[in-house]
Amino acid sequence: MYLAYFDETYSKKNDENSTGEHAIIALVIPADKMSDLESALDGVVAKARKQHPEIPLYAELHAYELNSGVGSWKALKRKPRPRVRIYQDAISAIARIDGLFVCRGSVDLTKRFCEDPHRWALTFALEHVNYCVRGKKDNVIGICDDIPNKLIYQRYFQQFRTEGTQNRFSPDDKLESFVDALHFSPSKFSRPIQAVDLLAYVYRRVHLEPPKDERARLVYDNLWEEIESLFRRGSSRTW
C-alpha cells in the first residue's frame, strides 16, 4: 500500500519573473515507511528546538513560514541562516526515505485558458500517481492539504474512479490503483503534508518563481539538487 500526499503551488501569470504555472505536487510513500518519515521530520524540529528553545514544541514545517520567519518560526525572524539550515535538514530527511517518489501535474497558464486550473493540475497528478502505483501492482490512498472547497474535488475524485478522468490525454483512466475517498487534512497536524509542502515550495522557487536575490537562488538550487531524483522517479505532465 502507498500513501500519496498532494499540495498545490503556482506562479503568477502576469509576473515577468514567473512562468505562469499552476502545479500539484504529489509525494508518494510506501505505507510501511510512513513512521520513518514522521520520525525524521520530528527529529528535525527536535534538533531545531535544542538549538533554539524558543521554537514551539509542535512547530509546523511550513515552507513559507520557515522561509519568511513567521508562524512557528517567528522567533527566528532575524536569523535567516538557522532557518535555511532547518529547511536543509528537512529536505535531507525526506530524501533519505526509501521508496519515496514525487509526481507532478500542472497547467501552463500562459498558453491556455482554464476555468479551474487546480482541477486539471490535480487530475494530471492523480493520473500520474495512478500510473506509477499501477506499475508496482499496488494500491494507494490520496490525502490533500486542507482547502475550503474540498467537497468539489472529492466529488470529482469519486467521478474519476467510476467514469474515468475523461480528458483527451488519458481517456478511460479510472484511477484503479486508488482506494477509498480523497482525504483532506490540515498541514498543521500532518508531517507528510508538511513534507510535500516543503518539496512544492522548492519546486516553485527553482522552476516557477526564482528569487531575484542570488544567494536565495543558490539555496533553492542546492535544495533542488537533493530532491531532483525524487521527481525523476515519478512522472509529470504540463498542459
Results as ranks from 00 to 15, higher is better:
N222W: 06
H128V: 00
V179P: 01
V45S: 07
L76R: 04
R96Y: 03
V202K: 06
K50P: 02
R233N: 05
A23S: 14
V133D: 00
P192G: 05
A59G: 13
R119K: 14
D172F: 03
P56M: 12
K212D: 11
A90Q: 02
E38S: 06
R49M: 10
A23I: 10
P211L: 07
F113I: 12
K150Y: 09
G71M: 14
G69C: 08
P171D: 04
V179S: 06
R232H: 07
C144N: 10
C103N: 07
K12P: 01
V206W: 03
I147T: 05
V107M: 13
K150H: 11
Y87S: 04
L230S: 06
P211G: 06
K79P: 03
A31T: 12
E163S: 05
R161I: 08
Y58Q: 15
S187Q: 14
Q159E: 08
S92N: 15
W73M: 09
N14I: 07
L100W: 01
P171H: 04
P192W: 07
Q194N: 11
F169R: 13
A4R: 05
L66G: 09
D180S: 08
I91M: 13
Y10P: 01
Q88W: 04
P30A: 10
N17R: 13
E16G: 03
D213T: 08
R161E: 12
K47E: 15
F160M: 10
P80S: 15
H118P: 03
Q154I: 12
Y87M: 13
P30L: 08
P148T: 14
F184V: 05
C144G: 11
A216I: 06
H128N: 05
K136H: 01
K111H: 07
F189V: 13
L126N: 06
G99V: 04
P171R: 06
A195G: 02
A181I: 05
A90W: 01
